[in-house]
Structure formats: structure tokens, C-alpha cells
Design a binder for these strands. Structure first.
Length: 311
DNA sequence: AAGACGAAAGTGGTTGA
DNA sequence: TCAACAACTTTCGTCTT
């Protein structure tokens, strides 16, 4: 359902003369006229609606020349100016009656300029959150944009209802990373965004299903460059790792295993082979798995590929 | 003392009846 | 809806460097 963007003016409801509710708005003469007795009940009417009409969302977007104010801070936690509903001034004195009407108008416009409507608002919150998280994770521009696009799509499909904007944005980032073959682990994204891991996973599954995204399972290869550089490993190790992974993929012994665990184990093997040994603990920390998993994987791989690791 | 190893029990999510 | 299940984690004792 599309919400009307038009602001409601507080119109007179009944004709004071004949009590008829049959009032007609006349935007050309800018007045409200009683449909029964012809009395002009309100003058100087301002037509706050657009002069065009739109019959669907696309038209609405095309024709709208203005949007909500692009000031993210307005949507930030209490950073924006608000008017108290109480009729007292900054010193706690009651506002004189003659100024009340003015204050009332100020309040009204304050509200109106801040929030165009609920969906625009959550969009703004989302984008503010998006830029925060993506810079914390130093994501590339194209991933940011894709995440933004996904978020917009999700918003259009009303998928955010019942979820927090932040969670949906976070899930969008996760998806965008995967689509660009630059996967991040759920832990990494969780750390940068402050959203719980399982919450991200749930939301990510939900939006990828609803938006009909085809997401291929991640390959351990995608993690290698990032993990290696975090561990400050040489190019030799990286090359070796990729080599082993390719061989492993050919023999189909990597399927069904967590890609991060496999990547970590193969990196471990490569460091040993290249005499650049890192502890399992360090690799495990970078990859977000436990040492035990590394051990299990690398035993399997060494067995199947006949790699001898003399120490 | 730190790292590596492995057994055993626990966890969260998927699957199939 | 529930139990079975696979992958992975946690925990902990033991061995190795």
C-alpha cells in the first residue's frame, strides 16, 4: 500500500451556519465552501498537495521534484531540534497566550519538515547506517552502492516492516559482499555493525529469498587474499594456498565444509610448506574458526592429497 | 610456557517425516 | 512440530617443541 505523501491541513469539519458536513474545497478560489448553504467557511486555503497526480509508485517517483530533506542528522538519535509540547519557554515560564498560536505553528512545521513519511524516514536511517558500517569495514564503492540498491529494493517491497532498518542494511551489506566475491564472515559484519550474527543470518536469508537473489555458496578461495594479508603472509604462501585449493576442489573434498574453515586449514598447510609458520591459533582468529576446525580440515586435506608435512 | 593434538560433549540451524 | 543430523565450537587433558 502506498502512503499518501500529502500533508493534512486541519480543515473546518462542519459548516457553522447550517451544521452541514458537506463542505467543498475549492483550490482555485482557495476557499472551503459549504455545499448546502454556500457559506465560505475557510479562506486563504493553501493547496499543499502536488499539482500533479500519480497513479502508481513509478509515476510518483518520476514526478516528485522534491524529496525529504537529505540531512541524515535529522534522523539521528535526538540530535535534531524539537519543540516540547509544553507551553513553557526556555526559562520555564509559561508562554503568553498570544504567542501560543505561533509556537503551535512552529511545532507543526518542525514535525513536517523532519519526516516526510515513515518509509522515507527509514530509508534515510538506513543510508546513514550504511555509510557508517561500510566505512568501518572499508568496503569498496561498488559494494556500498550495491548494498544501497538492495536496501532500496527491500524497502520498496516493505520487507523492513517488523525489522530494524539497521539489521536490513547489515544484511544487504553481507549480500553485496558475497555477490562481489568478496565475502565477509558474519562475525566481521556483526562486529562492525553491532547486529547479532544470527540476526544478520536470518535477515539475509529472508531478503535474498524475497528478492529472488541467486547466491552461490562462497568458495574458500574468496577468503584467501584477505586472510593472508591480515596475517602478513608472503605472496608465495598465497600462491601455494590457491594451488592446494584448486587441487582440493578437483577432488571434491571441500564441499559441505565451511569455506572459512577450509581456507584457514589450507593457509595453515601453505605456511608450513613455505616455512612461514603461523600458529593455528592466529590463523583461527583471523578466519573466525577454532583451532580444532583447522586441525580437522587440514588432516582430511593432507590425507586426501598426499601432502607430506615434515616438520 | 606455548603450541599442537584429539576426545567428548554442547550448540544452532537445516531437513524430512 | 519434532527429532535426527552434520558441521562446528567449547572444553579440557596430554604430548611436543
Amino acid at each position: 500500500m502506498v502512503k499518501k505523501n500529502r500533508q493534512k491541513i486541519e480543515y473546518v469539519k462542519k459548516c457553522p451556519e447550517c451544521n452541514s458536513k458537506n463542505l467543498k474545497k475549492d483550490y482555485y478560489k482557495a476557499e472551503i465552501v459549504c455545499g448546502d448553504c454556500g457559506l465560505v467557511v475557510q479562506e486563504n486555503l493553501i493547496d499543499q498537495g502536488p499539482e500533479w497526480r500519480a497513479f502508481d509508485n513509478e509515476q510518483k517517483q518520476k514526478r516528485a521534484r522534491t524529496g525529504p530533506p537529505i540531512k541524515y542528522t535529522l534522523h539521528d538519535k535526538g540530535l535534531s531540534t524539537t519543540f516540547s509540547w509544553k507551553n513553557i519557554d526556555a526559562y520555564g515560564r509559561p508562554v503568553p497566550t498570544k504567542n501560543r498560536a505561533q509556537i503551535y505553528r512552529l511545532r507543526k512545521w518542525q514535525r513536517r519538515t523532519q519526516i516526510a513519511n515513515a518509509s522515507e524516514r527509514s530509508l534515510a536511517i538506513g543510508f546513514a547506517e550504511l555509510s557508517r558500517i561500510s566505512s568501518a569495514m572499508s568496503l569498496t564503492r561498488s559494494i556500498r552502492e550495491q548494498a544501497g540498491m538492495l536496501y532500496r529494493k527491500a524497502a520498496k517491497k516493505n520487507l523492513i516492516r517488523g525489522r530494524s532498518a539497521k539489521t536490513v542494511v547489515t544484511a544487504a551489506i553481507y549480500v553485496a559482499c558475497r555477490l562481489n566475491n568478496m565475502p565477509r564472515t558474519l562475525e566481521e559484519i556483526s562486529a562492525a555493525s553491532g547486529v547479532e550474527r544470527k540476526e544478520i543470518g536470518r535477515t539475509y536469508r529472508f531478503i535474498s529469498r524475497e528478492l529472488g537473489l541467486k547466491i552461490v555458496p562462497t568458495s574458500p578461495m574468496d577468503y584467501v587474499p584477505r586472510f593472508c594479508s591480515k596475517l602478513k603472509l608472503s605472496q608465495d604462501v598465497k600462491t601455494k594456498t590457491i594451488e592446494i585449493l584448486k587441487e582440493g576442489a578437483d577432488k571434491e573434498l571441500l564441499s559441505g565444509r565451511g569455506p572459512t574453515g577450509v581456507a584457514a586449514a589450507v593457509i595453515y598447510i601453505a605456511t608450513v610448506l613455505c616455512n612461514e609458520r603461523k600458529t593455528q591459533k592466529k590463523i583461527a582468529a583471523v578466519a573466525g574458526v577454532t583451532e580444532v576446525t583447522i586441525r580437522n580440515r587440514y588432516k582430511e586435506i593432507v590425507d586426501k592429497l598426499d601432502i607430506s608435512l615434515e616438520l
